[in-house]
C-alpha cells in the first residue's frame, strides 16, 4: 500500500546493485544466465526437428510397375512418394527427334541416352513434377497438350519439355527429374 510519511526519511539504498566497476560475483551471474540461454537454445532442437518428415514418411517405399501392356507412344502415370511419375514408351520418331537436338544448346544439357537405362532407351521414366514450381505437366494422358516439342507441357507458367522430357522453353530451369529405378525383369520396373 501507499507508504507512510516516514518512508522518505529512511529510504536506504536497499538492493541497488553497486556501480563500482568490476564485481567479483559477476562471473557466477553471467554463467547462470548463459546456462539458461544454452538450455533455451537446446529446446529449439526438438521444436524445429518435429516439423521435418516423420519416420513413416521417410520410410523408403518402392513402387513396382508392370509395363508389359504399355504400347509404343503410350504413357502411364504412377505414384512415387506421393508424387506422380510418368513412364513413356517412346516411338522411333520421338527418339529421333530427341537425338536430333544439339545437346550444347540445351538449358540443362543431357542426352536421351543419359536419361534412360541401357537396353531400354525407349522407356523414359521421369517425375511428373515441373522443375519450375512443381505443377504436374500435361502430356502423359491421351489427348493432353504435349507442348511445342511433343513431350510435356506445364500449363502453370508455360514450360515446354521435349520428347526426352528436357526443358526447351519457358521458366523451368531443369529437365524433368529421372528418379532412381531399375528393371527387375524386361517388363517390370521398381522405382526407389
Amino acid at each position: 500500500m501507499a507508504s507512510t510519511g516516514t518512508a522518505d526519511a529512511h529510504s536506504e539504498e536497499v538492493g541497488v546493485a553497486s556501480e563500482d566497476g568490476v564485481r567479483r560475483r559477476d562471473f557466477i551471474e553471467i554463467a547462470a544466465v548463459s546456462a539458461a540461454g544454452v538450455g533455451g537454445l537446446a529446446c529449439l532442437l526438438p521444436l524445429v526437428s518435429q516439423m521435418a518428415p516423420s519416420a513413416d514418411v521417410l520410410a523408403e517405399s518402392s513402387t513396382e510397375l508392370d509395363i508389359s501392356a504399355l504400347e509404343e507412344g503410350q504413357s502411364i502415370k504412377a505414384v512415387f512418394r506421393k508424387q506422380p511419375v510418368f513412364v513413356r514408351h517412346l516411338t522411333p520418331a520421338e527418339i529421333e527427334a530427341a537425338d536430333a537436338v544439339d545437346v550444347g544448346s540445351l538449358r540443362d544439357p543431357q542426352t536421351l541416352q543419359e536419361r534412360t537405362e541401357d537396353g531400354h532407351h525407349n522407356i523414359l521414366v521421369v517425375m511428373g513434377v515441373c522443375t519450375h514450381l512443381g505443377c504436374v505437366p500435361l502430356g502423359a494422358a491421351e489427348g493432353e497438350n504435349k507442348g511445342e516439342f511433343g513431350g510435356y507441357f506445364c500449363p502453370c507458367h508455360g514450360s515446354h519439355y521435349d520428347t526426352a522430357a528436357r526443358i526447351r522453353k519457358g521458366p523451368a530451369p531443369k529437365n524433368l527429374e529421372v528418379p532412381t529405378y531399375e528393371f527387375t525383369t524386361d517388363t517390370t520396373i521398381v522405382i526407389g
Binding site: 518512508a7 529512511h10 536497499v14
Partner: peptide
C-alpha cells in the same frame, strides 16, 4: 503491508 523503501527490493535482479 509495505510501508517504506527499506521494505522492498526491486524485482530484478532479486
Amino acid at each position: 503491508e509495505v510501508k517504506q523503501e527499506s521494505d522492498t527490493v526491486p524485482f530484478h535482479p532479486y
